[in-house]
Structure formats: C-alpha cells, structure tokens
Design a binder for these strands. Structure first.
Lengths: 257, 257
DNA sequence: AGACTTTTAAATGTCTGACAAATGAAAATC
DNA sequence: GATTTTCATTTGTCAGACATTTAAAAGTCT
C-alpha cells in the first residue's frame, strides 16, 4: 500500500482514513480481525508507533476494539446504539457550546424534532414508556430535588416519550437534541412555580400519549416549548440586569479611584 | 495527575478521557494551547508515545488540532458544523449498516424529522434555498443521469429544504438522517417512470415551500415517504424472488448431482 | 533606522529497539 | 482424560534518538 509521505495530512491520519474507508465500505465486516500491528506496519511501510496512532484514532470513533494476547488484535467493532449515542451527544454538546448557539435556536430545533415523534409515540407507546414517564413525573414533584436532578429527570421523561415511537433510529437521532441541551437547561433556575408548571405540562403529555391523542400531545409540546423559552428568557434577562448593574458598580468604583 | 495503571481501560484512553472532559466542561477553551507532549507526559507520568496516542484519539474526534514547530502544539479546536456533520454522517451510516436497520425504519425516521422542518422552511426559506431546489430538480430530469447521481441530487434537494428552516442545529441534525440513508437509497434502481414520479413530487414540494404553504408541503412529503417505501419494497421483493429462484436452482442442481 | 536574511530553539512527526502483560493454544504431567 | 505448565503471539508501554517544521530572535545589509 502506498502512503504519500509528503502529504501534510500525517501518516497516521492517512492510514486511519484508509482503514476507516474499508470498514465503511464494507470491505471489512463486523468482528473481522485486522492484521497485527507488525503486519500493518510492514504493509503500509511505516513503524509500529505510527500504526498504533492510526488504530487509536479508529478506536476513538468506536470503529475497532483491541484485544491483547495471542490471537488478539484489532477487530472491527459492532457499533451499538449506546456507543453511537454517546458520540452524538458529545459532538452535539460541543457544537452548541462552541458556536454560540442561542438557547432559542437549540430549543426550537429540539422541540420541532420532538413534536415529530409525538404522533408515532401516541400510536405505538408501550406500557414501559408510560411507566417511565409516570415515574419521572413523580420524581419531579419531590420537594428537595436539585435543579440538576430535575433536569436529568426531564431528560429521562422526554427520552421515554421519544422511545415510545418504537423507532430506534429516531431515538438515536433525538438523543442528540435532547441530551445536548442539558448543559443549557442546567443554567436555568427552576422555581417551585415553574416546576409546577412543567409538571402539569408533562402530565398533560403523558395523558395524551396514553389516550393516543396525537394532536393534543403535539399541542402540549408546543406549549412546553413556549414555557421553556420564556423561562430561559427570564434567566438571560436576570443575568443581563446583573451584568449592567455590575458594570455600573465597576464604573462607579473606577470613577472614585 | 493520578492515572490508574491497573485499569483495563488503557493509559492512553484514560488520558484522552481526562482531557476530553476538560474540553467539554469548558475548563479548556477554544484555541487554548495544551501543554506540550513532553509536559503532558511528565504531568500524567507516562511516556510520550502514550500521550501521543491519547492526543490522536482527541484529534480523531476533531476536539484538538496540532501544529508543528516552535510555539506549536495541540490546540482546542473550534468544532465547525462541517466537522460535526462529517462525524455524524459517518456514525449514522455505520449504525444503519451494522445493526440491520430495515429500510422502513430508517425511512420512517428520516421523513418524520424532515416533515418537522417543512413548516419552518415554508415560513423562512430564502431565495438561495429555492434556487438550489429548482436547480436540483432540473438536474434530476437529465436523461443520462446515473442512479448514484440521481441520489446525490436528491440529497442536495432535501438538504436545501431543511436549510430553508434557517436553523443550523436542525440542519446539522437532519444531515445525519438524510445523508446516512444514501447508501440504502443507492441500492434502488430508479426507472424513468419512478424518477418522473419523484420529480413531480419534488416540484410539488418546491411550489408549496415557495407559496409558504406548510400544510401542503407536509402532505406532499408524506406522499414522498410512501413512494420511497414502495420503490424500496419492489427492489427488496425483486431480490427475494431472485434469491428463491437461485435457491431452487441450487436445490435442483444438488438433487441431480 | 528599517528591511531582509540567517540562526536557533521549541515542538511535533517518525523510527528503532526493547520489555511487560495478557491470552489462548499446545505440550507436559498427573 | 483432566489438569497444569509452557510457549508463542500480540498488544501496551517505555526510552531515546533523529527529522522536520515553525516562528521568534539575532544578525546583516542598505
């Protein structure tokens, strides 16, 4: 195999790409063993550390797993929903935090997608999803609950709703939207009053899903989006006020120095 | 920093996780320079190759970029939409191909999400998106077009539709659904008749989006889902027939041996 | 003094060689 | 025949070295 040593991509990156393409194209199938590091090193005409760096890149993407010992080696990994979800959440979270995505934009996207699941969930939800939603609502009315725990429960509730659609691809895609918003949601302080409001909405969603009323469920989800945005605005406004107050204070202090 | 050498996770994996967490938590901000490999090696009390493997893992996830030379090093990378999209498509494609997802399931998820974008696209689409959709429809009626090119144009058309919602998060999330289905779509042979049918539907979508008719656009997208599934079924059926014919032939040959 | 060239130090990229640890197969032993 | 031991294979890790790149610093010329 020819690897261009003059490319500025780096040898290990090129080798990783080469193997990755083979996996994606299906030339290497699940659980198939790759050649040993020594063989790969000879094949690509590079040293073993370089091969190892390439393999680590693939391992980071959950494309391969490695096993030590005789008859060990690198194997094409079966990409599970859990692995895929984890990567999606990581990437989505970073994307939101690094690109200055407004709460509004993220919230709009998330609820638009979630509303798309509602009709399917209303039609197909099983008793497990209803049970989870009910349990999480119970949890959300516990008095001593921290904001983080409230958010975590909120995520579980909505994941159960999405899972109700009984479409694993949908569950996977939505987890990126729902869980990636958790850091943003965690910035909100949930007052007793706003919690009660959310719990009431959640109860409405649960009831409508249980009653297989797709239209109502969609409508209540729209309400939840509005309430969530309103809550976020109040937090942002409070911060803006705090900032300008601080700015004023700072300015006053400087002027008296 | 203490790294547990007895953990079966592997040193480089643990170190990668440690740095990754720091990036995700915001302790390391964009464009911040990480310590040099030598310093990291000393800090984590491991050798430089081990540090390098850890850094390659992070590079594979587009979390860092490296720069050679004096004052070079590893920098926290600004995760662009393009990078995130690329990773999402890779992961989604593998997820579909490795978990025996039926065309039905993938198709249902994709169109459910796409329909969620339609109302927003109808309301906010700009002239750019309309132009792209129009251009791709023109392309799709070219006579000599291969099936692959037809699929590729189809993807562009639908991406333009989603982009019309003017929500980058939505565009990002949907690209995973739309592009990851391309390998599945490529298995379909598009007859002149089915192409005409699809082009007609695409035209209907374009017109309804241009007319800001959200309801009509959603309805036509539902039609497209039905047509797409029907097309896929015919391909699957044809293959099933071919298989059973082959099985019969094989059986006949065996019995005469 | 200012613009250009050269030097130099710092950092990543890569290689060689070595040893440790895990692991399953094969051989040896009871 | 079942159990234990040995052994070869393969990944995990380390140490040290050299090559290459890069930008700052020093030097040089106009």
């Amino acid at each position: 195999m020819k690897i261009d040593p003059d490319s500025n991509a780096g040898l290990s990156a090129q080798i990783a790409k080469s193997i990755r393409d083979a996996i994606i194209s299906g030339a290497l199938i699940v659980d198939e063993r790759l050649p040993s590091e020594a063989e790969l090193a000879e094949h690509f005409d590079v040293s073993r550390p370089t091969i190892r760096e390439a393999l680590k890149r693939l391992a980071a993407q959950s494309l391969i797993r490695t096993q030590r010992g005789a008859f060990g080696g690198a194997f094409v990994r079966h990409l599970s929903y859990e692995d895929a979800r984890e990567q999606l959440v990581t990437t989505s979270t970073l994307l939101l935090s690094m690109n200055g995505i407004s709460f509004d934009t993220a919230c709009e996207a998330r609820f638009a997608l979630e509303r798309a699941c509602a009709p399917m969930a209303a039609q197909r939800r099983g008793p497990e999803q209803l049970a989870i939603m009910r349990a999480e609502i119970e949890r959300q009315i516990e008095p001593g609950l921290t904001d983080e725990a409230f958010c975590a429960s909120d995520v579980k509730f909505h994941r159960a709703l999405v899972d109700g659609a009984q479409n694993p691809v949908l569950s996977y895609q939505l987890s990126g939207s729902i869980e990636a918003m958790q850091p943003l949601m965690n910035m909100i302080t949930f007052t007793a009053r706003s919690r009660a409001e959310i719990v009431e909405i959640h109860t409405g969603i649960l009831d409508s899903i249980e009653a297989r009323d797709a239209e109502l469920a969609t409508k209540i989800l729209q309400q939840l989006e509005d309430v969530t945005k309103r809550l976020a605005y109040s937090v942002i406004d409070a911060k803006a006020v705090a900032h300008s107050k601080k700015a004023l204070t700072d300015a006053a202090r400087v002027s008296t120095d």
